[in-house]
Write a protein that binds this DNA or RNA. Structure first.
Length: 596
RNA sequence: GGCCCAGUAGUUCAGAUGGUUAGAACGCCGGCCUGUCACGCCGGAGGUCGAGGGUUCAAGUCCCUUCUGGGUCGCCA
């Protein structure tokens, strides 16, 4: 009962100023501040407290000569107590100014204090430079989020979503919500399922994206749609992947590829310039999928440094070096990268070989270029002419290290692409101030899935083939290019989209290529196929991973730093302890039995 | 599902070769202190060494299993 008497009310104690905004202009004003006790310095006869709210920190002073009563209460304050104080703002004497904080020229002498709530000792300090295991931060997320750095991240996120909305609203887009309880689709990621109590034995799925609904909205005549919405994929997590994440989802009618890309360049420019304060030049460079893979070994190249992949298959196809010759005979390729003067030891080169094996490569050949000679374990198998041609082809200078991978095309590109990235990082070739936006275009429409023994859609089954490639759908389906595009920033895929198929016939054709019978296709996507029959505009769009964009804006490598309540690698929320078991009655109502 | 790293006080860590009562810093509690701002000084409390099993006279330390957190490959149309 006594404790209840300690709780003090806000009545008549309305905040007049924010802690971080007080300055010399407020001197001699009587102000009321509210916030958390950030730090307390008790000097015996005088107590200083750093009071913290969202705006920042302000020093308040408890002095017996100002108020005996306030001083006594100030003595009882501890970290993270929530208080309100009324007092007069005073200019600090020159020698007491704290240049480290914006409010360091003033302080508030407390005349009256109210303790709104006490606080247990927090498990870690509320400050930016903490060295605490992330699981503890996640368990006590409410405290972690008080840290100015985390507040800044969440504020950046809020401003970024506003910037997207402002831009899209100004371009006449409509924000339209789509269902969270929707139909499970077989293609793509694993669905999160939600049982339906009123339809026993049946399940909704949480959306992996609003893809089908936004296409239907185009059929419904809204022409320009966007939504900033949560999506769910039950797949394994990564440092930039959460099971629930936010998409900036856009769809437009009566457009082709160039229209979509141009609008998106303007939008990305708007958002990054407004939030990050950098200059973004448009249009962004474009590179085809094929060129990206051949030159960088990946469909999301980091173009902040060179070290492009170079094909030397033709030079070594008849070489005495069996690894090269046999690989080419079996239809493989030999490619290399030129690492400019890395100064690597033999030991370090051996380390690269281990790296290659980690990525699934069979091995790594290397040539160290010297003044008038080369050093290499394979040089004795190569003719003088072959070596000369390789050096010329790869623009090799003394001290350069040439690295080669011989494998099938896909593996060689993948391994060298990863090696290139690792070396770029290791040799500090990456200028972290650069923002290299890049469109990847002309993705293949289909790829063959060895496991499923059928073609699967590279983007998704609703992506339109390029007009000039449609004729190859029956003859060379894997050569058909799609009207699909990704936006890549510094080696990270920010988003992707496509122009969609808008005819029932072509869509049915697509499903048949994917190995669906007509019945299966209609069973799963009948509502879309049927909708197509009632007048469908040509349409297309794009979707961005908002979390990843905010990671760039906030300059963090960790997606959990830009989400208020993220999940761990095991998809667990350490604060709420979700997921959890449910009571038997809930399961009974849903006719669900746990068979663990 | 595979591989790698970590788990000892509230927090971050130390703890060769197995061996007396598991230490430090910060934080916390108490005392002193009227100009601090990472306040200072003095004193104190605080441990399921992630969990289970095994080897041993003896395990924080060695072995096995397992859990948790992180990274990564597979996966993510």
């Amino acid at each position: 009962m006594g404790e209840y008497n300690m709780i003090e009310s806000m009545k008549g104690f309305k905040r007049t100023h924010k802690c971080g905004k007080l300055g010399l202009e407020n001197v001699d004003e009587t102000v009321i501040l509210t916030g958390w006790v950030h730090r307390r310095r008790d000097l015996g006869g005088v107590i200083f407290i750093d009071l913290r709210d969202r705006s920042g920190i302000c020093q308040i002073v408890f002095d017996k000569n100002v108020s005996e009563n306030a001083f006594e209460k100030g003595d009882r304050l501890r970290s993270e107590y929530v208080i309100g104080v009324k007092g007069k703002v005073k200019k600090r004497p020159e020698e007491n100014v704290n240049p480290k904080i914006p409010t360091g020229k003033i302080e508030v002498f407390v005349e009256e204090i109210r303790i709104f709530s006490k606080a247990e000792t927090p498990p870690f300090l509320v400050e930016n430079k903490i060295n605490v295991d992330e699981s503890i931060r996640l368990k006590y997320r409410y405290i972690d989020l008080r840290r100015p750095l985390m507040q800044r991240n969440i504020i950046i996120r809020s401003k970024a979503t506003q910037a997207f909305r402002n831009f899209l609203n100004s371009r006449d887009f409509l924000e339209i919500e789509t269902p969270m309880l929707t139909k499970s689709t077989p293609e793509g990621a694993r669905d999160y399922l939600v049982p339906s109590r009123v339809n026993p034995g049946k399940f909704y799925a949480l959306p992996q994206s609003p893809q089908l609904f936004k296409q239907i909205l185009m059929i419904s005549g809204f022409e320009k749609y966007y939504q900033i919405t949560r999506c769910f994929r039950d797949e394994d997590l990564r440092s930039n992947r959460q099971p629930e994440f936010t998409q900036v989802d856009i769809e437009m009618s009566f457009v082709d590829v160039d229209d979509v890309l141009q609008l998106n360049e303007e939008m990305i420019k708007h958002v990054f310039e407004e939030i990050k304060g950098i200059r973004v030049d448009i249009p962004f460079p474009r590179i085809t999928y094929q060129d990206a893979v051949e030159q960088y070994g990946t469909d999301k190249p980091d173009t902040r440094f060179g070290m492009k992949l170079i094909d030397i298959t033709q030079i070594v196809k008849n070489s005495e070096f069996k690894v090269f010759r046999n690989t080419v005979e079996k239809g493989g390729i030999v490619k290399g990268i030129n690492v400019k003067s890395p100064g690597f030891s033999r030991r370090e080169i051996d380390g690269l070989i281990d790296l290659v094996k980690k990525y699934g490569g069979k091995g790594l050949a290397w040539i160290m270029v010297e003044q008038n000679d080369v050093k290499s374990p394979i040089s004795k198998f190569l003719s003088q002419q072959e070596i000369a041609q390789i050096l010329q082809r790869m623009d090799a200078q003394p001290e350069d290290l040439l690295l080669f991978v011989a494998d099938d095309r896909e593996m060689a590109n993948m391994v060298l692409g990863n090696l290139r990235l690792e070396l770029g990082r290791r040799l500090n070739l990456i200028d972290s101030r650069k923002f290299n936006f890049l469109w990847i275009t002309d993705f293949p429409l289909l790829e063959y899935d060895e496991e499923e023994k059928r073609y699967v859609a590279v983007h998704h089954p609703f992506t339109s083939p390029k007009d000039e490639d449609i004729q190859m759908l029956d003859t060379y389906p894997e050569q058909v290019r799609a009207k699909a595009y990704d936006l890549v920033l510094n080696g990270v895929e920010l988003g992707g989209g496509s122009i969609r198929i808008h005819s029932t016939e072509l869509q049915e054709k697509m499903f048949s290529l994917l190995g669906f019978s007509k019945e299966e296709a209609w069973n799963r996507f009948g509502f879309l196929l049927k909708a197509f029959k009632y007048g469908t505009p040509p349409h297309g769009g794009i979707a961005y991973g908002l979390d990843r964009i905010v990671m760039f804006l906030a300059e963090t490598e960790n997606i959990r730093d830009v989400i208020a309540f993220p999940k761990t690698q095991n998809a667990v929320d350490l604060m709420t302890e979700a997921p959890s078991e449910v009571v038997p009655k809930q399961l009974e109502e849903l006719h669900i039995e746990i068979t663990l």
